[in-house]
Simulated scan of single mutants.
Amino acid sequence: MKTIVLKNAVFEGLPVICLDFPYDFALKELVKTYPECQWSRKHKAWWVPYREDQLNELIQFFRGKVWLDYSSLRKVKVQDKFAELPVLEPAIQSEVNKLRDWMRNRRYADSTVKTYTEAMALFFRFMDNKDPEDVTNNDLETFNRDFIIRRKYSVSYQSQVINALKLYFGTLAQKKLDPEIIKRPKKPMLLPNVLSKEEVKRILDAHDNIKHKAMLSLIYACGLRRSELLGLKFEDVDARRGLLIIRQSKGRKDRVVPLSEKMVLLLRQYYREDKPEIFLFEGKVKGRKYSDRSLENVLKQALAKSGIKKPVTLHWLRHSYATHLLENGTDLRYIQELLGHKSSRTTEIYTHVSTHSLRQIKSPFDDL
């Protein structure tokens, strides 16, 4: 069995773990599928960020595929981003753990659990491990003013902190506090980025690789989020009825979107060539879903080949799908269902970027 040697290193001032092995194409392709693995041109090495649980995750990922030699790997003390704040005391850490367990038992998304518990821990570190029973509304205002605003954290982060504290004090601590006293700032209204149909076609036609073409095409053809595309399994494609089933997406909701005959033919051609085993789109290792980073690279390559200079992201294709539907006369309520939006307000943003009605407006400048 092939061997990968794990070594400590420091890149750009940050501790990392390097994956060292003699050049081997198959091994290189396997390493690329590890979610956090990156290639450093400067150091000519494959690496992942250092953190305490990284070794365990590497062992789980590569088990049965390669030997991992971590005999020379040493534990590193990672610099605390908020080193000036006191460390959490055991009693407060126990409260943070209670919130984490409570959220997990109720099937909150892992990312939400992580964000909320980190926000709660940060609040109590700022408050110098103050007993939750003694926390007041004034403490919440002080934290907002002297920490969040002074450090110029984003509007979305401020809202996340409010949500975390509201959940903890209102549900677990059962303490009558009002986290809403921290006034939620107005979110800036940013219009979604939309491509023209001609630009979309150039991007989708850029790849000769059938898998790459099918992935980008399906995102646009069905208005998918990146995670939705990568989570698809072959049985989610109902070719006979012309439907695509998206399971347990954002908000843990299932939804169904129409699948055109043109897209079905492309998927059939792709399946005959690639023959995925579990997921509709898999990496070099059969049975493992295609990685986020690899999908981003597929888009970058398409942009380079098509000559489009805009900073296009995968989500732009989803925005373009919704806008083009609206311009074709599709009712906004249907678009809301197709995109899986909980609120119609989220979908209404596309009315601001649709050019169908705007082009009918005559400028008074033309009458001069």
Rank of each mutant, 00 (worst) to 15 (best):
L85Q: 04
L267R: 04
Q336Y: 06
A322M: 06
S320Q: 05
A9M: 09
L27S: 09
S159Y: 03
V135A: 06
L230W: 02
Y50V: 05
F123V: 03
K253H: 10
E36G: 04
V87W: 08
D128P: 00
L280E: 00
K28R: 13
D139K: 01
L73Q: 02
T115S: 13
K183Q: 15
L326Y: 03
S72K: 09
S72W: 06
E95T: 05
T355Q: 14
D128N: 12
R106A: 13
N137T: 00
P35I: 13
L88A: 11
E95C: 14
V87R: 10
S94F: 10
K253D: 13
D80A: 11
G251E: 09
D366H: 10
E57G: 05
L85S: 06
W46G: 03
D254A: 14
L339Y: 01
L172G: 04
M127T: 01
D178W: 03
P276T: 01
H43Y: 15
D139T: 00
Y334V: 10
D208Q: 11
E89S: 13
I59K: 13
H207Y: 07
L259Q: 02
P276I: 00
D80E: 14
V66Q: 04
K213G: 02
Q54F: 03
Y168L: 03
L332N: 02
D131Q: 09
Q60D: 15
K309W: 10
L317M: 10
L358V: 08
R150M: 14
L68P: 00
R150C: 10
V5P: 03
E273W: 06
G251F: 09
L122S: 08
